[in-house]
Nucleic acid binder design. Structure first.
Length: 838
RNA sequence: GCCGGGAUGGCGAAAGCGGUAGACGCAUGAGACUUAAAAUCUUGUGGGGGCAACCCCGUGCGGGUUCGAGUCCCGCUCCCGGCACCA
């Protein structure tokens, strides 16, 4: 094996061969020894916080997808550093959660042993890949010194009235006797045993993220995220504008059920309030549907229908949450016997219950307009309910039959005094008309639900609440944090459906912090998404025991300059993180309310056209590739596969090309001469390359940046010439973000003037200066078209005028033979083309 | 069903605003070096026709706008990702 650095035969013989393994080991060690990647967070100039989504440390080790994400992020960090920023690129481990817990259960190793082992393996792999990570700020969410502050965060939300407890449904497998996450329910059955899943009601903690729905939506207008991510968030928040409309309860004998209706209704006497986005269609509302669990159902149901209603409610309650929400199934429901009054028509309409109406959305009740809504149409058809047309498209009349629901635009019909109005206008007019009569109010609704953070599991931070018979729920005093997760030999969820922590009496029995009487800890733990909703705040201040995040460091380093991560987190993680940041901002703890000013999602790596999976056996193990090709080659190859934001197709056959490129660079740099002058043509290409690589790297166009460097390499070597040092040195700087070890080694060798003296890291060598004058071409190739068809090419001086270009074009016999007479018209695009319309 | 993103050579891909389609790389043909092979270097390679210079066709499909369309507009097909009865 070649020894790096000193092996160059200074007598002028063959330079040392490129040996990535020794070079990479050398530089990884050097970076560690010299703290190259640990910036001075207190004093560093022009701070740049380059953040990547931290990994879950799985037992399988670093996944190629992780490495793809981190490499792209690292390149950006290194690039910004070369541009003169002090770059902070931290990493940590998102090690709590059901994923780790299930894995630990499967292999029978306790997560408290498993996780540190996995983390150790991840560290090794991450170091080997040459990331510019500041290891001095590493964190793990499972560390009590971290989750102490996760619990503190819960208390802050609790103080602000943003954490509350309510009964909510969970998926329950009656055979395994355990709570299941939604993703463990496959087609309505338990993924492990196939038993149909039921729903159970448990008391759970929620965060009021819905209070922030409007702000979470509005801020999307100005933060610098890709449109697709913003759209995903907008859809998730799901703003709908419409009206809440009161349907009076008529013939049921219960009168207007004022006291039993939802208390927040904006309408004084709401009867049965419904939410609709189409108040314009109210004249076609021929029946109402309540969610089966709607509180009004009991009051409204008539005695003769009670039995059927009860049976239906029981049946839906048994259904699991997942399959109830999956559409495309037969509509079911029963009549309650009650009649309500349509406030627009004054007609009585029957009140039904059906599971296609969801209690969590709107008022849990709808007015059904079967003529203009697919689901209502299906239901009305199944149960023989009347279908009335109230919107007519051009060419249709009030009597045109409806073979299917019509959702398009049109004019109102069968709508009394509103007949003839365009539907959009009718929406405003009818809402105003109903509002005047106290039967409606404009209302905005969001799809977003409050965030359920309770998990009836073991592997998470215990929720810091103590229940006291006398005082009720009491928050754990801040000075008692962390509430440490105890070691539980058996942490398997059991048939009680409550957390395994409820089996450890000596842990959960504690005195009430308020009155001192014997009380009981909350035994649920919190959602992993809470751990990851604030980790970026902790990084700069990691190690501080007295505060979650230091005010000065936070002001200096946050918000994050650029966040890069996977699209799978485009919705939940990013939304929760934004929410938590807003809450802390409102509490006066943060000077900003958006955590990530710039976010981009990287694409996915597939292999030979197919998704990687263990069952297919086509998973790429990064270790093998790094060992065989070197980290620099592997990194550069990953980025060369395709556009970073779109992902790419990993093929073993493609790596060699990247390796060849690095080998050529190695040889050209070590052979470069100081004698003579650099070639002006090469220098021009160099400056064009400097511009392209800089621009492309800045916008994550890594694949084309690499292609541009390869192109320059080809120009550099054309005609087997020996490159001038001034031609090669800037290329070493350009390649440094991509192949950092190679760049360091070459930089050092190129600057080995004084024996023994160490050259500064290439990271601190800056980014080559782009000179437009040197990049300018003095002649251009003009394309000549006749009627838009390419006929010839001309080489003309760069500033050639239209007249000159036209004359030259017509003089060209290749062109002339397609132009019979004088041209009708000539289009000239300076520097690009002449098009003659003959 | 809805929302996003795609479809370009044998393959991965590239083409700021509509202006040379296929940069860069893989694979592959030929050649140089070599006793030979590997490595390296040179060179060809979208399809069809022609001895040639050249000509015709070509960016999923069908229309359109334009001097000019991979790019814009209308209507489809298929693939990938996400959401899923949200009134």
């Amino acid at each position: 094996m070649t020894i790096p650095s000193t092996s160059r035969d200074r007598a002028g013989g063959e330079p040392a061969a490129y040996d990535p393994s020794s070079i990479e080991r050398k530089w990884q060690l050097r970076w560690q020894e010299e703290g190259t990647n640990s910036p001075d967070l207190e004093r560093g100039e022009r701070p740049w916080y380059q953040l990547m989504m931290f990994p879950y440390p799985s037992a399988e080790g670093l996944h190629i997808g992780n490495l793809y994400a981190f490499t792209g992020n690292d390149i950006q960090g290194r690039f910004r550093r070369q541009l003169g920023h002090t770059v902070f690129e931290p990493i940590g481990f998102d090690a709590f959660g059901i994923h780790s817990e299930n894995f630990a259960l499967r292999i029978g190793v306790h997560p408290m042993e498993l996780i540190p082992r996995n983390i150790e393996n991840f560290r090794r792999q991450l170091r080997a890949s040459g990331l510019m990570v500041d290891w001095s700020h590493e964190l793990s969410t499972t560390d009590p010194s971290y989750y102490k502050w996760t619990q503190w965060l819960f208390l802050k939300l609790y103080e602000q009235g943003l954490a509350y407890k309510k009964g909510a449904a969970v998926n329950w497998c009656p055979s395994c006797k355990t709570v299941l996450a939604n993703e463990q329910v496959i087609a309505g059955a338990c993924e492990r045993c196939g038993t149909p899943v039921e729903q159970r009601f448990l008391d759970q903690w929620f965060f009021r993220i819905t209070d922030y729905a409007a702000r979470l939506l509005d801020n999307l207008d100005w933060i610098d995220w890709s449109d697709s991510t913003k759209t995903a968030q907008r859809n998730w928040i799901g703003k709908s504008e419409g009206a809440e409309v009161a349907f009076g309860i008529g013939d049921s004998g219960l009168g207007m059920a004022g006291e039993s209706s939802p208390p927040q209704s904006p309408i004084p006497n709401p009867g049965i309030p419904v939410f609709t986005t189409r108040p314009d269609t109210i004249f076609g509302a021929t029946y109402l549907v309540l969610a089966p669990e709607h509180p009004l159902v009991e009051r409204v149901t008539t005695p003769e229908h009670r039995q059927a209603v009860e049976a239906y409610r029981e049946r839906t309650a048994k259904q699991d949450l997942v399959s109830r929400k999956i559409g495309e199934k037969e509509k079911t429901g029963v009549f309650t016997g009650a009649m309500a009054v349509n406030p627009a028509t004054g007609e009585p309409v029957p009140v039904w219950i059906a599971d296609y109406v969801l209690m969590e959305y709107g008022t849990g009740a709808i007015m059904a307009v079967p003529g203009h809504d697919t689901r209502d149409f299906e239901f009305a058809t199944a149960f023989g309910l009347p279908i009335v047309r109230v919107v007519a498209a051009d060419g249709e009349t009030a009597d045109t039959p409806l073979g299917e629901p019509y959702m398009g635009d049109g004019r109102l019909v069968n709508s009394g005094r509103f007949d003839g109005l365009p539907a959009a206008e009718g929406k405003r007019a009818i809402t105003a008309w109903l509002a005047e009569r106290g039967a409606a109010a404009p209302r905005v609704n969001f799809r977003l639900h409050d965030w359920c953070i309770s998990r009836q599991r073991y592997w998470g931070p215990p929720i810091p609440i103590i229940y006291c018979d006398a005082c009720g729920p009491v928050p754990v005093p801040e000075e008692d944090l962390p509430v440490e997760l105890p070691y539980l030999e058996d942490f398997r969820p059991d048939d009680t459906g409550i957390s395994p922590l409820a089996r450890k009496e000596d842990w959960y029995r504690v005195p009430c912090p308020r009155c001192g009487a014997m009380a009981r800890r909350e035994t649920d733990v919190s959602d992993t998404f809470l751990d990851s909703a604030w980790y970026f705040l902790r990084y700069p201040s990691s190690g501080r025991g007295d505060v979650p995040f230091d005010a000065g460091l936070t002001k200096r380093w946050l918000p994050v300059d650029w966040y890069i991560g996977g699209n799978e987190h485009a919705v939940l993680h990013l939304l929760y993180t934004r929410f938590i940041t807003m809450v802390l901002h409102d509490a006066g703890l943060l000077p900003f309310e958006e955590p990530f000013e710039k976010f981009r999602a990287h694409g996915m790596i597939i292999r030979e056209g197919a998704k990687m999976s263990k069952t297919k056996g086509n998973v790429v193990n990064p270790d093998e590739y790094v060992a065989q090709w070197g980290a620099d080659t592997f990194r550069t190859y990953l980025m060369f596969l395709g556009p970073y934001e779109e992902g790419g197709d990993f093929r073993d056959s493609g790596i060699s090309g990247v390796r060849r490129f690095l080998e050529r660079l190695w040889r050209s740099a070590l052979d470069a001469t100081n004698r003579g002058e650099p070639d002006p043509g090469v220098v021009r290409k160099l400056h064009q390359t400097i511009r392209k690589v800089g621009e492309d790297t800045a916008r994550l166009g890594y694949n084309t940046a690499i292609a541009a460097m390869m192109e320059y390499m080809n120009a550099l070597r054309a005609g087997e010439r020996t490159a001038h040092r001034a031609e090669v040195e800037p290329l070493v700087q350009l390649v440094a973000p991509y192949a950092p070890h190679l760049a360091e080694e070459l930089w050092e060798r190129l600057h080995e003037s004084a024996p023994g003296a160490r050259a500064a890291s290439v990271l601190d060598a800056g980014w080559p200066e782009f000179d437009p004058a040197l990049a300018a071409e003095d002649s251009v190739e003009l394309v000549v078209q006749v009627n838009g068809k390419l006929r010839s090419r001309l080489r003309l001086p760069a500033g050639a005028s239209q007249a000159e270009a036209e004359r030259a074009a017509l003089a060209d016999p290749q062109v002339a033979k397609f132009v019979p007479g004088p041209p009708k018209k000539v289009i000239f695009v300076p520097g690009r083309l002449v098009n003659i319309v003959a």
